[in-house]
Amino acid sequence: MMSLNTQSDEEPMARFKPVGEVINMSEKREETIAVQPKFQCRDVRVFYGDNEALHGIDIEVAKTGVTALIGPSGCGKSTFLRVFNRMNDTIPTARVTGEVLMDGENIYAKHVDPVLLRARVGMVFQKPNPFPKSIYDNVAYGPRIHGLATTNDELDAIVEKSLKRAGLWNEVKDRLKDPGTGLSGGQQQRLVIARAIAVNPEVILMDEPASALDPIATAKLEELIDELKEKYCIVIVTHSMAQAARVSQKTAFFHLGYLVEYDETQAIFTNPKDQRTQDYITGRTG
């Protein structure tokens, strides 16, 4: 397990060598504290106005692999996902308390700029949301705003690599100038993943990424997640328990704003310890 971790941490390092300093710094950080989990959350609470939506979540997320967040609608799993990249900051009434340590550093500390955080923690949304730009420009958007490429050739290389890694390259390599909005739903979702990968994040958050896709596109997406989990820390919110069982190694069950149970996926689905978890996964509630 340990050796696999180191290996997967080193590989993106080798591949992304030419793309600027930001990445090099994050690589060094990863090397020195590889034993730690990616995220440690302590007593995380999220408020919308006066309404407390999440009631003190404590959880640790592993450096690689897939962590699934499941639970009935309105249980706070999507809210919790947006804690990791501080997307809740964009909602004027939302407020987060507690500590979220990313590689041991509290991302809610005063000196942390959410803009820099989000370059390290990418996100994929429920509905594919490519920008109304060309396929190329969609993927190049992140590298451009973060200055990851100094020449056009470098940018081309990043775009190609990201699209390849998202399993979309062969389908779009001849029409990179076509609008990204013209792709099919499944292709759009993979384009959005390529767009996130292009910034070279350490974490990819996915908010019900397959809910707008048909079964075939979903299967492709899950295959992709399976490949990506070797290199990235992936946190996925899903409504489909079958999907959680297929793609994740750890599963967290949320209910009414509480983290009810968090364990190996295998254990959650075969031997849940909490009655509420059992009711949910057997279809009695939710």
């Binding site: 990249n85 997307m87 964009t90 803009v115 820099l116 955080l117 989000r118 370059a119 990418g122 996100m123 949304f125 509905k127 949301n129 490519p130 920008f131 109304p132 730009k133 958007y141 992140g142 705003i145 973060h146 959005v192 767009r195 996130a196 910034v199």
Partner: peptide
């Protein structure tokens, strides 16, 4: 312009003005 485009841009680490000039305004 759909909120999802703003979210997508913010989630990539774009600032408000980058989102405005590079995504929302062209859209």
């Amino acid at each position: 312009v759909p909120q999802t485009l703003r979210d997508g841009s913010y989630a990539l680490g774009a600032t408000k003005s980058e989102t405005m000039t590079k995504v929302i305004f062209p859209a």
